[in-house]
């Protein structure tokens, strides 16, 4: 077992454990903080799999921007802790059964296909090569994504604005 192999299994266990803890927290802030741990683990996994630029972006975008946005919203709204059972039995039993079934079927499929037994060999996509590839072959997609982000910004502004009429109870 090489160092890479040991690191992979260690990171995998860490990611699954912190995600599992996050899903079962009652306190939303704790859940988000555990998920930040999970995304740090994912970023290290990306580095191990030869994607250093994506590893950096994952820390900045996922663990940084997205999770901080969640924290802001949770602190802004200040909802009370959820009363009652964390997982209503009518909801979690079907979800767990379906999820486990999908996991078993998927694992069997993965293990049955011979190509998935091939070993991954370490290789690194240098950020320079990756950026050149991105902007030479996918420049149109980059532009479309920028338009998508602009539309999302406008949508979030529209949904998030505070209507004065809501306070007085009159429709405009």
């Amino acid at each position: 077992m090489t160092l890479y192999t040991a690191l992979f299994y260690l990171l995998g266990a860490l990611i699954v454990a912190s995600t599992g803890v996050a899903v079962t927290r009652r306190n939303l802030v704790h859940a988000v903080v555990y998920l930040i741990l999970s995304f740090f683990g994912t970023s290290l996994l990306f580095y191990l799999l030869g994607a250093p630029l994506l590893a950096a972006l994952w820390v900045i975008i996922y663990a940084g921007a997205i999770m901080v946005l969640f924290l802001f919203i949770i602190m802004m709204t200040r909802a009370d802790a959820q009363a009652g059972p964390l997982f209503p039995p009518g909801q979690w039993i079907p979800a767990a059964v379906l999820g486990l079934l999908y996991l078993v079927v998927g694992s069997l499929m993965v293990l049955a296909v011979p190509e998935t037994g091939a070993e991954l060999r370490p290789a690194v996509a240098a950020p320079r090569n990756f950026a050149l590839h991105l902007f030479e072959t996918h420049w149109l997609s980059v532009e479309i994504v920028s338009v998508l982000l602009l539309v999302a910004l406008m949508g979030a502004l529209y949904l998030g604005r505070r209507r004065e009429t809501d306070v007085s109870g009159e429709e405009p």
Binding site: T5, F8, Y9, L48, V110, T116, G117, E119, R121, P122
Partner: peptide
């Protein structure tokens, strides 16, 4: 080598 591709999936 790192791991089999299947384990990652």
């Amino acid at each position: 080598m790192i791991v089999p591709f299947g384990h990652l999936l």
